[in-house]
Design a protein around this nucleic acid. Structure first.
Length: 261
DNA sequence: ATGTCCCTTCACAAGGGA
């Protein structure tokens, strides 16, 4: 199973590039973030023509997450499944079962700056995500994929002191991410690469991409049952180049599943 | 060095968000 996560920064603006990339890479399951679409505007037929079933959870102007799958799309759950109205105002998580794996497409709040209301909302949302995962089948295959807006450690940031008023690298954010991993989820990128300087996001401004000023904030977290069959992992930096790119590059991982129902 | 991009609207310019 080839799984991809990609923050596309407006699916409307990015659709031609997304179509082209999917045609070349042929992933089985795709998690998209920041579609910025209402559900009625989601281009389901475009993806159907490429062989994908699709689900979308959007609100129109901001946020919005989607799942595409060529290996089945069942038991779709929107948000935290109605568990927390305050945290579900924004369309930030969508979950389904694809090819025997429970998969979530996740868009963690940005947080803006440490101490800001948005920062406290980010931490509250991460706590809500943790509660949501409490409901998982502990024996099931699990993938949590998306834009976490957290750089797991200092290797994942070009310069810790320069970053976003220290959001994305603050201790409480990193602790919340570590707590997710403590549940048995593995940052699969680090199963294949030890080096720093390997990023998934670069600010559009100031030529940051070409200066190598980025962060690794897009993650695929996988249950240990899946990591056992982990193959290649790749950030496709080329997708950040050229005309009208997203500010994020897609992250890809291949798994051979122990068993597919 | 807030140097970009994408969204929306009391819309064709400006503000919000990242």
């Amino acid at each position: 199973m080839r799984i991809v996560t990609w923050n596309v920064n407006s699916l409307k603006a990015r659709l031609p590039r997304v179509e082209e990339w999917l045609t070349q890479v042929r992933p089985d399951v795709v998690c998209l973030q920041e579609t910025k679409l209402a559900d009625a505007a989601f281009p389901a037929l475009t993806f159907q023509a490429l062989g994908y079933d699709a689900a979308h959870h959007g609100e129109g102007r901001w946020n919005g997450v989607a799942l595409l799958s060529r290996v089945g799309l069942a038991d779709v759950e929107y948000g935290f499944g109605g568990a927390d109205a305050e945290l579900e105002r924004e369309a930030r998580i969508l979950t389904a079962t694809c090819g025997g794996v429970r998969v979530s497409s996740v868009y963690v709040p940005n947080g803006r700056e440490v101490g800001h209301d948005h920062y406290h909302y980010k931490l509250a949302w991460l706590a809500g995500l943790s509660r949501y995962l409490d409901r998982d089948d502990p024996a099931g295959h699990r993938l949590l994929c998306g834009d976490f807006n957290i750089a797991p450690d200092d290797r994942d940031v070009w310069n810790v002191d320069e970053v976003h008023g220290a959001t994305h690298v603050s201790a409480p954010e990193r602790a919340a991410l570590a707590a997710l991993c403590d549940r048995g989820l593995v940052d699969v990128f680090r199963e294949r690469y030890d080096a720093g300087g390997l990023y998934s996001w670069w600010d559009y401004r100031a030529g940051n991409f070409h200066k190598g000023k980025g962060m690794r904030i897009d993650l695929i977290l996988a249950s240990r049952s899946l990591v056992a069959g982990l193959g290649a992992v790749l950030i496709d930096r080329n997708a950040r180049k050229g005309k009208s790119p997203s500010d994020h590059a897609p992250l890809l991982a291949d798994f051979s599943l122990p068993e597919v129902p």
